[in-house]
Design a protein around this nucleic acid. Structure first.
Lengths: 342, 342
DNA sequence: TGTCGCTTCCAAAGCGCTTTGGATAATTTT
DNA sequence: AAAATTATCCAAAGCGCTTTGGAAGCGACA
């Protein structure tokens, strides 16, 4: 059942049927209803390929598969992707995945996608502090949006959470509680978000008149194992150097810290304080932690949804202002933080 | 730069250029080389949309997003997806994601994909024991392939690993070592793979003349937490009922078990034996476990790759036999298993 | 010499949609 | 009542590729 068949059945021209279905004004509501009913009845679905060819738009958004693969990263990616797909599907778009692997360099992948017009735009996630992919996409004239931010002279569409503010708040909560030795379990600082978090932390420290202590700052993978080993090292320090509070970039790391604390007979929330960033993954949430975890939280799935929404707006309405959202991050205080033990 | 432009430059017809580029025999190697060079020089890339319209093939494979979301599941999915995308990209195909969410039922999603010819075929993963999606896709006339197996009267293309054989072997290793009380930390048995694993376990038990003990069989999520709580419960049993060996469906669960054992002063590989299935995830591998873990192992990423390969073959060569691969699973013996303590 | 077969190439017809530039009928304005 | 609008609808031209059904050139064979 194609457009021609349908219009033949209806005794209308293809033009009219097409316009009726696509909501153009120059067709009476009467016939529009008739057309809709017939389309429904005969199960008519426009051919995606034909529409693509005619409009020059593919109706497809590309998500680039992360290059760096790790446990938490994969988890975050799935959650993020789920959000993207959900929103895209609601808006009638498809999501396809782009990946640089083996012989294919990142550049060749994008180039191919652009030339063959497979996607209308791309979504980049977790950019580096200085990420060459932006420049590449720009030079290829491929629209894109970034999940996160990066250092770029030129403005670019993005959606990010306020990592710096979040970690500032979290650190400030701890200094306000009297903590003076606060460990930061962060991530590789070539990633922009990790760098932002560090800055927020440092800012709050200096505001409290505290010095930066390098030994208390760890750049480790965001997994439980590293939380564990970092905690062991940190808690093995002499009592007067040992941190009384831990600020983690992920719940996984916090989980490792909590485990070590428990092994040493410490109670989280009393003997040590613990805060983590919570990306609101399925089944890995701060509130079901033991004890319920004070956390800076922001749903990465929602970010995916919104990112797609922004991207589609940008694509369909080219008078739309450049997307540049930075979401504030809530600090939710629960049982894992308390005053510094005396 | 489109085909017309390119053929104009070359002084050839579009037909010839198209054929030269697509490797048809009726064009001399001479001109083929000339055409290729010119295409390369001018950066010609055929429009995906036009080709799709002309051939009726979308060059796109759909992967359905898992409905059940959980920690390990998401990890496995990302790994699987990575394999699919890598292979598809090598073969010039795209992968798009299909997801039933919100208003969209699974059926409506497939129906839309089929009617609008967005995808040539779909990939289903982790099917249930009885999975209605197969029948649905069949009735919609949409080619598909299944990662895993399911109970179906009609043959269907699939690739699976020999879960039953794997768990049979693993269990047999343990009974051969003298273990008589072997715990199975499995997963929800409505999933076919979990059911297969249970069967392999039971088969080996009965071969060793052992009874099935329900208290030793757990159907829990495949995460560390549940490995932990299951292990606590099992090791709290009276000495003469307590399992001396644990067989886990995932490394995560094994990790929980090992942790409990260690807390109780037991040495894994001596006081208790531990085996897990290893899907060869990035950074979660049996050999880097402490101690190195005896495991049944099979790369889920490789499965994704092969699945795509089989699916493309099926699509391009319709004389190809129905794909029906079941991969044997290696049991790799490492330090986590040993004779039953006396 | 005329014909056959082979190689190499081409013109033109789609694929199913969108969109431009009217045309016709109904309504309003002068 | 004629002219100007407006509301509906349509024919036809692409979008850029693949593919069908020849056609031209050329050596070989009878």
């Amino acid at each position: 059942m194609n457009l021609r068949d349908l219009s033949a059945i209806l005794g209308l021209s293809q033009t009219t049927v097409s316009r009726a279905l696509n909501g153009f004004p120059e067709v009476s509501e009467d016939t529009r209803a008739r057309v809709r009913a017939a389309a429904e009845l005969h199960g008519y679905r426009p051919s995606a390929a034909a529409r693509r060819l005619a409009t020059g738009q593919s109706g497809t958004l590309g998500v680039v598969f992360p290059r760096e693969r790790n446990l938490l990263g994969d988890l975050l990616f799935t959650e993020f992707l789920g959000g993207c797909v959900e929103q895209a599907s609601d808006r009638g778009y498809d999501i396809t995945l782009a990946m640089a692997s083996g012989a294919q360099t990142e550049e060749s992948v994008y180039r191919r996608a652009v030339r063959s017009a497979r996607v209308d735009a791309m979504i980049l996630s977790s950019p580096l502090l200085a990420d060459s992919r932006l420049e590449l996409l720009r030079s290829l004239n491929m629209p894109f949006i970034v999940h996160g931010r990066t250092t770029s002279a030129v403005p670019y569409p993005h959606l990010d959470i306020d990592n710096e503010g979040a970690f500032f708040q979290a650190t400030k909560l701890l200094t306000d509680l009297g903590h003076t030795r606060i460990a930061l379990l962060n991530f590789d600082k070539t990633f922009n978000f990790a760098n932002d978090r560090l800055n927020g932390y440092l800012h709050a420290l200096s505001l409290a008149g505290l010095q930066r202590v390098s030994a208390l700052i760890c750049d480790s993978p965001m997994i439980e194992e590293s939380g564990l080993s970092d905690a062991v090292r940190l808690l093995d320090m002499p009592v007067d150097e040992r941190p009384t509070a831990f600020l983690c970039s992920s719940i996984s790391q916090a989980s490792g810290v909590a485990r070590v604390a428990r092994q040493r007979g410490m109670t989280v929330g009393r003997d040590i304080s613990l805060i983590a960033h919570d990306d609101r993954l399925h089944e890995m949430r701060a509130e079901t932690f033991d004890p319920p975890l004070t956390a800076t939280q922001s749903s990465i799935g929602d970010a995916g949804k919104r990112l797609v929404e922004l991207l589609i707006n940008q694509l369909t309405d080219n008078s739309a202002p450049l997307a540049a959202e930075v979401w504030p991050v809530d600090l939710v205080v629960r049982a894992s933080t308390g005053p510094v033990p005396t």
